[in-house]
Write a protein that binds this DNA or RNA. Sequence first.
DNA 1: TTGCTCCTCACGTCACGTGAGGTGGC
DNA 2: TTGCTCCTCACGTCACGTGAGGTGGC
Lengths: 256, 256
Amino acid sequence: MVTIGRLAAYAGVTIKAVRHYHKRGLLSEPPRDSSGYRRYGAEHAVQLVKIRILAEAGVPLSRIKELLAGDPETFATAISEIDAKLKKQIEELRLARERIAGLREGDRLFVSEEVADYLERLAAFGVSARTIQRERDGWILLRSVSPERAAGMIADKLDAFGDPEFRAIYLDFDSAFDWSPGDPRLPILADRARRWIEGRRGRTGQKSSSLVDAGFARLMATSYGVSSPAWDQLNRIARDMPAGPHKLPAPPSRSG
Amino acid sequence: MVTIGRLAAYAGVTIKAVRHYHKRGLLSEPPRDSSGYRRYGAEHAVQLVKIRILAEAGVPLSRIKELLAGDPETFATAISEIDAKLKKQIEELRLARERIAGLREGDRLFVSEEVADYLERLAAFGVSARTIQRERDGWILLRSVSPERAAGMIADKLDAFGDPEFRAIYLDFDSAFDWSPGDPRLPILADRARRWIEGRRGRTGQKSSSLVDAGFARLMATSYGVSSPAWDQLNRIARDMPAGPHKLPAPPSRSG
DNA sequence: TTGCTCCTCACGTCACGTGAGGTGGC
DNA sequence: TTGCTCCTCACGTCACGTGAGGTGGC
């Protein structure tokens, strides 16, 4: 006939936990001695160890109560289910470990594999850190709006990057961010981009690709709300060109 | 500039969780649109993914807040600690799986290895299920009172069981539970037990062993509060024997 | 007498979940 | 107009933990 402290120590739980199990009706109340202290027997110790094992396996106390009251067959079935859940949990924790390891590395976590590879290629080509950051943010936003469109667009983009002319234009757009809006190179760049887009349309037979629809610099500028006077000017030149692939959508508000 | 629903879906959390992170100061409040809706940018998506990864690794939100605000060095150190904790947790879940598997088997969970083996030997010797149950309960209680004494006593008991005479006496005690208190075999059994105990004392040179101190049937009877008229009579006979190893402690109350 | 164990409320904590009651865009 | 998404309180949940204020045995 042991006290609550000894019982708790034996089972490896706290005294508060034992009292909590009484309150919840999981563990039967033992008789009291003359001072009102609870006095436990071996049957309580057995029950408490069972409760602890199930509780540590993450079984809700309400479920434990049911299980202890139910028949052995139901109990055995439940044990299998609990085991399966534990297995799953272990798997999830393993994944959690991998992901927090990824937090060290950083950026690869927030974009798809393809986008991460793409951003690395941009860096290798000498694209500015500022533009790479903007690309990354754009892809993150785009994926949050539509993962499917993002997947399609990145495939398109990677394909275009196979073309040295596209790479050259891209690098010029990158530099153009800092140009003055009156820079004579702007109309030349705009025309070069237009010709490339038309040529690509002919080659791929596509009615419209994501690159043609909007132009990536534009997507970046409008979706993330960052632009420069020179880029704005580039957009204006594009808008004023003869009809064709240059029918850009109305610019979203720059408020965000 | 995406809504709370899109952001939550992208990061794989609930809308309620996002709002909770705002309230707790983990995630900065984005600007509102004209309807008062929150409008998020890529930086929020990045933050939210970080928060989710840390939260799923079991890091308290208050700690996550600290980490996101702190310097990268502290962050890297914390990541290592978190990883160590996860590793530990996985190990604990693996143990939990083993233990709930043990719940199927049953009794071995609640007593030590030695006691479990001992109880199996009792069954093999033909000891009644009733007495085995009582032994088990006694060992559980004893271990909850004093694990060291329980370990010493089981070693002593296993040693005694190596002696065929002890086994014979034990089996007689077992049967005696149902005898009438006036049964003529009782004094004979008491005397046989006395002689065995004295002989053992001579052989082992021990001043007093746990078996001599109390006698196991007595421990069972008094600690678990179960006895029979014949066992009570056996105790009375032992008490009336000449001084020596038979000085038994005063019987605890039978109230429990 | 001091220290330790026990007792019973009652409220706190942690990370959200669950409505209630309402508004705004398609 | 209906359905969907968003908004802000306020309270609930789960498994205890944390005192507060007190008693009882060595």
